[in-house]
Design a protein around this nucleic acid. Sequence first.
RNA 1: GCCCCCUUAGCUCAGUCGGCAGAGCGCUUCCAUGGUAAGGAAGAGGUCGUCAGUUCAAUUCUGACAGGGGGCUCCA
Length: 658
Amino acid sequence: MSQITVTLPDGSERSLQEGSTGIDLATEIGPGLARAALVIEENGEARDLAAPLHDGAKVRILTDRDQDSLEHIRHSTAHVLAQAVLQLFPGATFAGGPPIENGFYYDFELPGGASFSDEDLITIEARMREIIAADQPFERFELPIDEARELMVDHPYKRVFMDLAAAGDDSDNEVGTGSEISFYRNSDTFVDMCRGPHVPSTGRLGHFKLTRHGGAYFRGSEKNPMLQRIYAVAFANKKDLAAFLKQQEEAAKRDHRRLGVELDLFSFPEEIGSGLAVFHPKGGLIRKVMEDYSRAQHEAAGYEFVYSPHITKENLFKTSGHLEWYAEGMYPPMELDREGDQPGTAYYLKPMNCPFHILIYRSRQRSYRDLPLRLFEFGTVYRYEKSGVVHGLTRARGFAQDDAHIFTTPEMMEEEVSGLLDFVLDMLRDYGLDDFYLELSTRPEDKAIGTEEEWDRATEVLRSAASSKDLELVMDPGGGAFYAPKISVQARDAIGRTWQMSTIQVDLMLPQRFDLSYIGADGEKHRPVMIHRALFGSVERFFAVLLEHYAGAFPLWLAPTQAAILPVSTAHDSYARDIAARMRTSGYRVEVIEAAETLGNRIRRAKGEKLPYVLVVGDDDVANNTVGVNARGNDVERDVPLDDFLTRFAQELLERGS
RNA sequence: GCCCCCUUAGCUCAGUCGGCAGAGCGCUUCCAUGGUAAGGAAGAGGUCGUCAGUUCAAUUCUGACAGGGGGCUCCA
């Protein structure tokens, strides 16, 4: 019998009998590896351990220690989920179940249009553990498509995947595009169509948890039937699973909706309506500091401040194209001045500020000497978000954008965009975010005005500016607005989640629709380019991101109350009030919590509010003009001279540090 | 908008297999004047999200609506 040779990752070669498999190779290298092996990579492509190896292949055996094994562990666990559901719910059918970040999901359709309950997840998970305990092997086999259709006769969604694959569309990643359809058999009763590979047997799995269930459209389209999806997380070992669950708990504690209530920052009164927030004094103070700093920075960067109304006659949004392309995101119109049968005038709440700023531009003849003209406004916009998507401050129906529109010549636009990106990133860093990547969103296929050529030109400007920064650039095909492509800045927060923050759009369309012009050095009329940009994105969303990023413990410059002064007893009240008065004259935000309760209790409450500084003053302090300093996250210091503390306080404010 | 779930005191949550409700925290008052994360006592506070229906009787069962949560789609 002839031999084959394979190359291991360290460059060494192994000779094996022809027909040898990954598991044969692992066994030959060592029994420990054979026990730990999950899948094998052959020339970079993952395959089953039971598959025969090819001569000359570069191979790599993946164990549970390899990050690359995770998707196979997750994908294999998804099959166990499918098996459990099909067994527990007779008549159920299944669609797709891919691995995703941290886990996997699987889509089902239950008989009679039923859905899963929370209790079902417990039952299903228990059955999954039985399947895992049974250590069923994953056995691959392949069938021609007509036999495959026969095998999946009860599972119409699987047949849709086959048809798509047969037509060359494997966007769902369910089956390969070869002439045969591959399957995996787990027991006499369960077979799933799948491209594989899988771990050798179900006994290799087990560190998973079913997390949620919910509806999901088949293949992600609203036009398709809604299936029932179960989500799960899965890891290679117990420790990773526990760490992930712990991190979820931490994220839940930071949830801005929860902190908003606990810290008395904002609320969503039912009386006002879904997605419409009010900011309470403490939240309002934070927001004001955020906005004040933003204004100061914009002023320094050459922006001018404008204001515009919340509503407008419909014509403005007809000209801009919003009514044609964005109407479903807008509140319905209100009709004014109706007389008898004569229709009145329709007014709309604005979903964007750009048309208003355009009118400011157009209010007079512009010269190239005026450009770039940078108009800035904290403009409140209203968008009629679908009821299912409203989510705290991050997805509201009314919110303020720190919106600016820069009108510039085509020649200057590239430089303007590049400078803008620096401005944006610097400012985000000032607010405490420093881990970014960029995303470039291109022309939406069937929801865009203008020609492809113009889009290409605008997109190229963004691309070149983005790639000149030393940041990762991710493509988002078709994700642009109807009038322009955009760069968005994605920021990672303190616990690694990413948020879409700033957006920058290069717009060649609206200047045309509004027939904007400027007089060039040649005395002729030219068309300006418009750059739309919002740095916070929405003030509300940015507020929420900072709140979660800092877990409510805002840095000194943003904290609504910067220090609480606690007299040990009533005898020290006036000393405490004197310090407070002195600090207030410097503009510091200070409160005195008098000795109506025990000191321990007052400290506890101040700590609960996550105040940066708690100052305790007693007999010694009154005698020596000192304070006891209990700084957030630090040990208690006694007998700190007041002037020293104030110097330190001022310094920390200046550094805007956290 | 679609699928599922939830809504009881300011907050977090018990509870009533249909007979008009409880706790902890918070709040108010009194006592305690306490040097770094809960001192004690008393008190106030709820037509059980809203509107219908079934019933002798609904906070409890049914439906609609509103608000919220988790998904899908969409998005700043």
